[in-house]
Amino acid sequence: MSVVDLVAQVVRIATPYLLAAAGGVIAERSGVISLTLEGFMLGGAFTAALGTYFFHSLALGVLCGIAGGLLLAGIHAGASIRLRADQVVNGIAINLLAVGATRYFLRIAFDSASNSPRIAGFNESPGLVGLVENPLVWAGLLALPVAWLMLNRTAFGLRVRASGEHPEAARSVGVPVGRVQLWAVLWSGALAGLAGVYLALDQHQFSDQMTASRGYIALAAIIFGAWEPLRAGLACLLFAAAETLEIHLQGTSLVPPQVVEMIPYALTIIALAGVVRRVAPPAALGRAQE
């Protein structure tokens, strides 16, 4: 296997992380906890499969996937911003809701308890060609630079940062904090939904709980990247590289695969504990607004 193929594999694995992290980093910086990336992603994967299958259109499938993420994000925003529900509790509820709802509608739509029928996808060929012809891969690679630009070079980004650090201060100068957070959460829903789309199209089906904690890994990347988009992007690639390694180590007894699976979470704990350098979350992260 060539180096190019290896890199291609890393990027392929990293794409859903990159997309979800690019959404989550904006929501987190606005002060809303992004535990929900997992649920948004699963919802997006399901609606993408639904759309692609019934409309026989990849483009409509992609849009449906985004809509699925947005729908769950809307529920999350309504509860945690508008109704000031606890963001962690509500986030877990959203993720459980996503698992239950996709299962329920999977049975109704496809009469199956495990997976949808085969759906179309982008270029099938393995390796580099299939990669460069998949627009979602490009979206993934661009997502975090775009998030960086949004955060640091737009007025919206300045308001996002102010809302996440000191919402009272933002409000006192007329920044509509709730609305800023709503847009930030919807943005994270759309991008995590897109990450779900990628998964469904890549595997040519929706299967039960197919996101397999990828949303949590994206959140871990955000934290490991100290809530900076570009660093979060590097963290996504690092975690993806570790997984690639794991795949190639399978069958050898060098390192048990479970140990490799632990890497993202172990690194996140190390980062949070400030072993290398103290990373501080946005000061008002998770705080319900008055």
Binding site: R161, E165, S172, A283
Partner: peptide
């Protein structure tokens, strides 16, 4: 305001 309304990292 008595308690400063400033965003410290900005």
């Amino acid at each position: 305001h008595q308690h400063f309304m400033l965003v410290r990292p900005l």
